[in-house]
Write a protein that binds this DNA or RNA. Structure first.
Length: 566
RNA sequence: UCCCCGAUGGUGUAAUGGUAACACACCGGUUUUUGGUGCCGUUUUUCCAGGUUCGAGUCCUGGUCGGGGAACCA
């Protein structure tokens, strides 16, 4: 059960929109030119070394979305060439997150490690053609020979080994006859190339590490640059979309494909998503988890997909967000408010409404019979008639929100105060009678009188109430814990300053836990996966980790927009 | 120092040589039994200098500014 299951959302972007982003323009040009046999196959290539975040969500929406738009498919490929960092746990979470977002990898599920044998054969091919060599130098020596931007590098003394010699050496590398670090396989390109990545880049290194899929079958592993393009090529990926940081890699990507004479996949780069008041680096997110600053990768304050899910975000809202963000090559920082807007926009249409009082204040309807309970009918969602109606118990003793009462108030105050009259949502209009205070001067109880013929839907009283309050019947109320979240960082760009640790910018008030909130009976069994609108408060979802039937724990996904300038 | 990429309101994204537009944010109004939603509206924009052209955000040249670029990471 989820908001989306109950209300299938037609995907955004369906409305006519003439303008195409630069990748769509390229694809249409390619299609028009009959390139790639008129096909569009994309891929999403996560390294299984962490959890997916909202930045990946954008990339997923772009790669899967574009393929779908042009009648193609998308492959999911786990880029697992570094066994020391990768794990099956991450593979599973990545699968779950992509599926939850609403995409399926019709093209298939692949692993770069599936291609290790093929990649090895490619390496031998280059060796035999004199385009790759085994280098016995230390990492330090190789780095020193790289030169610098503007300064040409120098050739390795091992650069001119014969193909036969290189082949024998490389075979020995695979056979485990050399220790880690003893040698590497390098492409023979140009040590004076202006692009540093073209200065005889490493293709293979020795690692006696256990791989999550191939186990101990290999002790040499290909580097990213020698694996990614060829993997795309093997899968006949037509449009390999990635982030800007790989622009400098494109010449290398093309070089390997050209030298090998294999399927000409093409790489196109676009700007990754940046969101203010948060961080996107996997390494930093991991630190938040490891240092216990948050409650795991799926803490509702985390920008991870699992965190957003736990917080109460819907897949449709994230897809819509990605759509609004757009695709371009310019570096960008998106306002967090756009994400919140996307959530509200979706939830306003699909979220069932419910009554909850976060900070309860006793409200006594003094002229209402002591033992009487009436079940008031109300709509489940005013934006969706098909959602129907439900009933809520009403009686003499109710809970109201502390924030909705003031002892002193001016004309702009629409809520309850001495002399004021308000509507109790879906029930009666009530007028102030008096209130009680304790020794500290705090208000402990508010007394009102209800107007009998003002019942919701059958109001003949003629009385006007400017404000409408939410409430819960005391006798039927269920206690709940409610967790209110604010942005995790108080600084728009927590990693703006390399001198300052981003942890310095943590927002100390990013989580507020409220015990003893009072919610209407139907919320007692609320299940994670469905996000409710708590009337006048915001959108809330039961917490998947801590909520239990009868003892619910709610996460606030986002507040309602508050237009009150009081 | 060299290579690559980018520059349009506060933030994003369009305009594909022909009136700079859309969304978010902001501000104001209106509707409302959610101070929500909806609806209407205000404010704010082409980095600089030359050039081509009847006409330049768009093309050319130079500059400025910003981002990326050396890993036995991806």
């Amino acid at each position: 059960m989820s908001n989306e299951a109950a209300h299938p959302v037609s995907d955004s972007g369906s409305e006519e929109r003439k303008s195409l982003n630069f990748i769509e323009q390229k694809i249409e040009a390619d299609l028009a030119a009959g390139k790639h046999g008129g096909k569009v196959i994309t891929r999403f290539p996560p390294e299984p070394n962490g959890y997916l975040h909202i930045g990946h969500a954008k990339a997923i929406c772009v790669s899967f979305g574009l393929a779908a738009k042009y009648g193609g498919v998308t492959n999911l490929r786990f880029d697992d060439t570094n066994p020391e960092k990768e794990d099956t746990e991450y593979v599973n979470s990545i699968r779950e997150d992509i599926a939850w977002l609403g995409f399926d990898w019709k093209g298939g599920e692949f692993y770069t490690s599936d291609y290790f044998e093929q990649l090895y054969a490619f390496a031998l091919q280059l060796i035999d053609e004199g385009k790759a060599y085994v280098d016995d130098q230390t990492p330090e020596a190789i780095a020193a020979q790289k030169g610098a931007p503007g300064v040409p590098g120098t050739n390795s003394p091992f650069r001119d080994r014969t193909p036969a010699e290189n082949r024998a050496l490389f075979e020995q590398m695979r056979a485990g006859q050399f220790p880690e670090g003893a040698c590497v396989l390098r492409a023979k390109i140009d040590m004076a190339h202006p692009n540093m990545l073209m200065r005889d880049p490493l293709m293979y290194r020795i690692k006696f590490a256990h791989h999550h899929r191939t186990g101990d079958a290999w002790c040499i592993y290909p580097m990213y640059d020698f694996a990614h393009g060829q993997s795309d090529s093997i899968e006949h990926i037509t449009h390999s979309l990635c982030s800007l940081e790989f622009e400098n890699h494109r010449p290398l990507y093309n070089w390997f494909i050209e030298q090998l004479g294999i399927y000409p996949s093409e790489q196109t780069e676009f700007a990754r998503l940046n969101l203010n008041y948060t961080i996107m680096s996997k390494r930093k997110l991991l630190r938040l988890v490891q240092e216990g600053v948050v409650d795991g990768w799926d803490d509702p304050r985390m920008p991870t997909i699992s965190g957003l899910r736990r917080r109460g975000f819907t897949p449709a809202s994230i897809r819509n967000f990605a759509d609004r963000v757009g695709v371009a090559k310019r570096n960008n920082v998106i306002d967090f408010s756009l994400l919140e807007w996307a959530l509200r926009d979706d939830l306003n249409r699909v979220a069932p409404r419910a009554m909850a009082v976060l900070r309860p204040l006793k409200l006594v309807v003094v002229n209402y019979p002591e033992d009487q309970v009436e079940w008031m009918e109300t709509v489940v969602n005013p934006e969706d008639e098909s959602a129907g109606t439900r009933t809520m118990p009403f009686g003499r003793e109710l809970w109201m929100e502390q924030d909705d009462f003031r002892v002193e108030a001016n004309k702009k105050w629409f809520r309850l105060a001495p002399g004021k009259t308000v509507r109790l949502k879906s029930a009666f209009i009530v007028e102030y009678v008096d209130h009680l205070t304790n020794d500290e001067g705090e208000v402990t109880e508010v007394h009102v009188r209800y107007i009998e013929n003002s019942r919701s839907g059958q109001d003949t009283s003629g009385v006007k109430a400017k404000g409408t309050l939410h409430w819960v019947h005391a006798g039927h109320a269920v206690d709940a814990e409610v967790r209110l979240y604010d942005r995790l960082f108080s600084e728009p760009s927590p990693d703006k300053d390399s001198e300052v640790d981003f942890m310095e910018y943590l927002n100390p008030d990013s989580l507020e836990i409220i015990q003893g909130a009072k919610v209407e009976p139907l919320l007692a069994e609320a299940a994670p996966g469905i996000t409710y609108q708590f009337t006048r408060l915001g959108y809330f979802a039961a917490d998947s980790k801590h909520s239990k039937p009868g003892a619910p724990v709610f996460n606030r996904a986002v507040t309602l927009k508050d237009g009150w300038k009081g």
